[in-house]
């Protein structure tokens, strides 16, 4: 009886803690938005962070995209061939990438590559009192450190996702056309006939912008909120990956259902 009571109270405390963190995260998001002026007035600050979050993630994104595209083409061909419509392979690869895999896989990789780096950096800046020092110099760490990283993530994510889709399609093309022997003309023309600029491509880009906001904000909050110890920062880094991944997949479902119904 006593054990159950203790378990329940721990569960309750855990839940309250989650809600508290959600509120604190939302507050940081709001503060970031209202102190964003400087990250655009001194755009170089943001450009620098685009380099660290975007350019540095290019390799992993492009290589993953290439393989994902190739696997999609191989698997898709196996199934489509049974129904005698192997020319539709281009449509399958393009739609899967542009609508779903491009934004989602990019966001998951981004959380692992750039998100963790952001969390660790902010956490260590806090642990070594760099954020405190900035505050004492009458410089807001949110305007100077958090906001530029936030906007950099929001800018970098759609670019990475678009590149992911494009490179993935090229990977699919390489497998489908030279390797399997699907007709190149059919590959592209079927794709063009069935991929819609607004409903497929722009919606995919919109998704990746939303994921960019979510992943970057989660990474920043975890870093900003991390206890200033080695253990605290390492835990926060893990939480960044877990929370970002869940947030991306959940948001993807919500966004997709909106896009399909509209």
């Amino acid at each position: 009886m006593h054990k159950i009571k203790r378990m329940l109270s721990r569960l309750g405390a855990g839940f309250v803690n989650k809600v508290w963190r959600l509120g604190a995260g939302a507050r940081l998001f709001w503060l970031t938005l209202i102190s964003s002026g400087e990250s655009f007035r001194r755009f170089r600050l943001t450009v620098r962070e685009v380099y660290f979050t975007g350019v540095m993630s290019l390799i992993i994104i492009l290589v993953s995209a290439f393989f994902v595209g190739m696997v999609l083409a191989l698997q898709g061909y196996q199934t489509l061939q049974k129904y005698g419509s192997s020319e539709a392979i281009g449509v399958l690869v393009a739609l899967a990438l542009v609508r779903e895999l491009g934004p989602v896989v990019t966001a998951l990789l981004f959380a692992g590559r750039a998100g963790t780096a952001i969390t660790a950096e902010i956490g260590l800046m806090k642990a070594t009192e760099q954020l405190s020092a900035m505050e004492m110099m009458a410089v807001s760490p949110i305007a100077r450190v958090i906001a530029p990283r936030f906007w950099a993530g929001v800018i970098a994510m759609p670019i990475l996702a678009t590149l992911f889709s494009m490179v993935g399609i090229l990977g699919g093309y390489l497998v489908a056309v030279p390797l399997i022997g699907v007709d190149a003309g059919a590959f592209w023309s079927q794709m063009q006939a069935n991929v819609d600029w607004r409903h497929d491509i722009l919606n995919g880009v919109f998704k990746s912008v939303v994921f960019g906001v979510a992943c970057t904000m989660i990474a920043l909050f975890e870093g900003y909120d991390a206890p200033p110890t080695a253990e605290g920062v390492s835990r926060a880094t893990t939480r960044t990956v877990v929370t970002s991944s869940l947030a991306v997949l959940g948001l993807d479902f919500i966004l997709t259902s909106f896009m399909i119904s509209v």
Partner: peptide, 9 residues
Amino acid sequence: GLAMKVGNL
């Protein structure tokens, strides 16, 4: 590229 080659823009 997506617009020209993949989509039907």
